[in-house]
Amino acid sequence: MIDYRIDRGSGVPAYVQIVEQTERALRMGFLKVGDKLPTAKEVVAATAINPNTVLRAYRDMEQAGLVELRRGLGTFVTRSLARPGAQDDSPLRREVTDWVARARAEGLERADVLALVTAALDAHDNEHDNEHDSPAPGDRGRKKEDA
């Protein structure tokens, strides 16, 4: 199960927040294939947002092939975004945790850390541009936005 948290002051539309939080949960493995998403009623009872907003987010995710609406049953995860390297106990996860601790210990702010990671990602992707031509779901349009 997933609990959505809607940040009303962020300027990000609520349906986008729902999609992003679901994608993050899929990436981190908190949600797995076959899991049921909360019903629109459950989400709005917890977040006090318009029910149509929830339905729109679920429809968007269905079109992206991440979930499936089964009539009378609910909305179910049909595809995982989890990669072996992103799991809790993976070596990559351990290394980045250590690395973040070192960066913090050297006095880097959150924004500095993010900037370093983004720069390294950009540099890497530019070098290997042709290898990653088809963006993964959840990566939609990210390249275009950055350009």
């Binding site: 019903t39 629109a40 009623k41 709005v44 009872a45 917890a46 977040t47 006090a48 947002i49 318009n50 029910p51 929830v54």
Partner: peptide, 13 residues
Amino acid sequence: GEIMAELMAEAAE
């Protein structure tokens, strides 16, 4: 927040 959530749940259901 609670009253609004109650109203939204009513509309959803």
